[in-house]
């Protein structure tokens, strides 16, 4: 008697292309990213039971969660590390897609993916602010002031995001909390579902044309995914047990800080802001890079050829553009990090 497929198997088509569903091709990056997001959801809800968004109670509640609530430190550490890891795995997943031509013929899903990258980054950014320690000063002061520089809509956008004409203790942390949970994480969840559904809609995972007949049953893939999931969870738990999420002294926005530090994923932008005017370094260049990435299947590689082939020739322009942007982000990040 044939075994009935379980829930996880049902998330996949009955069979998948053997090569392209293998770990050596995807490195499980999309699935690991999804798992980290689920972990973020679960730990995030647990954190919400103890978190108070208003300052200064927000810092106290984070401290209480970290030091007093049983296993609160574990929940917080897992949430933190899963958040940082998700940004890394999502970016690597995107890199894999670019290098193997996975975007070809899947323009909409590519755009959803870009939106997910933006959403993930902003969710991480707003999440870091919630702890309201002295390290949020950059995020609150430099990070948000960049919004003012956007011509025309800057001040209005600033008020929508920050909740007032300047960062203050009543409106701003509540705004960031709401953005983090409902304004960003929830849309990201919806986009993730859409992203996954689009894969099926686009004919399953991208693969070399004509390789459809070499396939594997989905149960096999689910087994690999299970192993990757348990390994990822084990790594996450060990990381959370051995390295604590950062928590500094409470924020005091009245007191100037010696050196406002950007979160690690914005060090590159902080470095740009050191050398360039805010509008150029904080808005035009980052948004320009993002638009360039979004336009990859529309402008830099409109071909269908090369799908599923690493470093395929038709996608060379796309690979160079994406590689250059990533290299610039990493390089600026390293320069900025060395400056600290």
């Amino acid at each position: 008697m044939a075994r009935r497929a379980n829930f996880f198997e049902h998330l996949h088509p009955p069979t998948l292309p053997r090569r392209e569903s293998g770990f050596g091709y995807t490195f499980g990056l999309g699935g690991i990213t999804l798992l980290l997001f689920v972990v973020l959801g679960v730990t995030g809800v647990l954190e919400m039971f103890d978190f108070s968004p208003q300052a200064p109670e927000n810092y106290r509640s984070v401290a209480r969660l970290t030091f007093e609530v049983p296993y609160g430190w574990l929940i917080r550490n897992m949430h933190y590390w899963a958040g940082q890891a998700m940004l890394v795995t999502a970016t690597l997943h995107m890199t894999r897609v670019v290098l193997s031509g996975g975007y070809k013929g899947r323009r909409l899903n590519w755009l959803i993916g870009v939106a997910l990258l933006v959403g993930t980054t902003l969710t991480d950014f707003t999440g870091l602010v919630l702890r309201w320690d002295e390290n949020v000063a950059w995020a609150l002061l430099v990070g948000t002031n960049v919004i003012w520089e956007i011509p025309g809509i800057g001040p209005m956008l600033y008020r929508i995001i920050v909740g007032a004409d300047k960062v203050c203790c009543s409106a701003t942390p509540v705004r960031f909390y709401t953005w983090h949970v409902l304004g960003l994480a929830l849309p990201v969840a919806i986009l993730i579902v859409w992203h996954l559904w689009r894969i099926r809609r686009d004919g399953g995972i991208s693969h070399i044309a004509g390789s459809r007949h070499i396939r594997r049953p989905r149960a096999e893939l689910v087994r690999v995914e299970s192993l990757a999931a348990v390994t990822t969870l084990a790594a996450l738990v060990w990381l959370s047990v051995s390295m604590d999420a950062p928590l500094g002294p409470p924020a005091n926005l009245e007191r100037p800080v010696d050196e406002a530090k950007a979160p690690w994923f914005f060090i590159g932008i902080q470095e740009l802001l050191r050398h360039l005017p805010p509008l150029l370094g904080g808005v035009i260049i980052p948004v320009g890079a993002l638009i360039a990435i979004a336009l990859i299947p529309y402008v830099f590689d409109r071909s269908k050829e090369g799908e599923g082939i690493w470093l395929n020739r038709p996608g060379r322009n796309a690979q160079v553009i994406f590689g250059a942007i990533m290299a610039a982000i990493v390089l600026l990040g390293v320069i900025g990090a060395l400056r600290r």
Partner: peptide
């Protein structure tokens, strides 16, 4: 086993 050991380490730390 690694996951379980990690959880046990968390219990120990707690």
């Amino acid at each position: 086993a690694a996951l379980l050991a990690g959880l046990l380490a968390a219990v120990t730390r707690q």
